[in-house]
Amino acid sequence: MIQLLVMAKAPVPGRVKTRLCPPCTPAEAAAVAAAALADTLDAAKDLSAVRRVLVLDGDHPAPSGWVRVPQRGDGLGERLAKAFADTALPGVPSLLIGMDTPQVTPELLDTAAAALLRDGAVLGPADDGGWWALGLSDPAGAAVLRNVPMSTAATGERTVAELHRRGVRPVMLPALRDVDTAADAVAVAARCRPGQRFPAIVASLSSLAGHAVTAGSRA
């Protein structure tokens, strides 16, 4: 059994998904973020886990059965490291994902959990050079994230390098595209399952309609 951590920011206009503005308004961007978070939590609800934790920046309710823990730290790397440290359970591996890949499936999370239990560490690369998932059997290994510049095209590569220096060799998971820009939102919506909130909200926003042409620029 593993512990699942979802790293999230409360969907407050003006504080979340600001790279969607323009073309979105801050309220529209917050609605996109809220849908992404809801779909991510839905995908995780049936995962066999000792505990599910919403590691939150801001104020937003956690689903029934989830624990809510505040994010701590000045930069994203430090916040990620402290998310692992603050939630650590003795002898239980932790799998951390973000809220920016609502196309993640329960099956992919099951695969990630199984690989984490088998191999001790996993990393899910993102198409933009970052990563969407990190699983560690020893949460102390996440301390290396303080040395990794976040939100760059080399974030994933640097994360792997820092883990290797600590003797941790993560198994790579399938790559996913995360939602930063309008083109990302349209492309990710096309990869979601029927009935999800994220594709519905993206389809409802006229501000995103013109970005479908460029959505394939980063598959």
Rank of each mutant, 00 (worst) to 15 (best):
L134A: 01
M150W: 08
A154C: 07
N147D: 13
T155C: 10
L163G: 01
S137W: 08
T155R: 03
E162K: 13
M150G: 03
H164P: 03
R177G: 06
G135A: 08
R169Y: 11
S137D: 14
L176S: 02
N147G: 10
A153T: 15
A142R: 10
R166S: 09
A153F: 11
A140W: 07
R146S: 03
V144A: 04
A161Q: 14
T159L: 04
V168K: 06
D178M: 10
E157I: 06
R169E: 11
G156Y: 05
V160F: 03
G156E: 06
R177N: 07
T152S: 14
A133T: 02
G167Y: 05
L163M: 12
V168I: 15
P174T: 08
E162T: 04
P174D: 07
V144Q: 01
A153C: 10
A161N: 11
L176N: 01
A133S: 08
A142P: 00
V168N: 04
G135T: 01
T155E: 12
D178Q: 11
S151W: 06
T155V: 09
R146E: 12
P149F: 02
V148F: 03
T159F: 05
P174L: 06
S151E: 09
G156R: 02
R146M: 06
T159M: 06
R166Y: 03
D178A: 12
G141M: 09
R169H: 14
D178C: 12
H164R: 13
R165D: 12
R169L: 11
P149T: 04
R169D: 10
L134Q: 00
G141N: 10
T152K: 14
A142F: 14
E157S: 12
T152F: 07
R177I: 02
R169P: 01
H164Q: 08
D178I: 03
N147V: 05
R165K: 15
L136G: 00
V168G: 03
M150Y: 07
A153L: 12
V148H: 02
M150I: 05
N147A: 14
H164M: 05
R169K: 13
R177K: 12
L176H: 11
V144G: 00
A143S: 11
A153M: 13
S137H: 13
H164Y: 07
A133F: 03
M172G: 12
L176E: 01
S151R: 11
A133L: 04
N147E: 14
A154E: 11
S137E: 14
M150C: 08
A153S: 15
T155K: 01
S151C: 07
G135H: 05
R166Q: 12
P170T: 01
R146Y: 05
V171T: 14
G135W: 02
G135R: 02
G135V: 01
A133C: 06
G135N: 03
S151A: 08
N147Q: 14
V148R: 00
A154Y: 09
P139L: 11
A142D: 02
S151V: 05
G167T: 04
A140H: 10
N147I: 05
M172P: 07
L134Y: 02
A154M: 10
E162H: 11
G167I: 04
A143Q: 13
V144K: 01
A133Q: 07
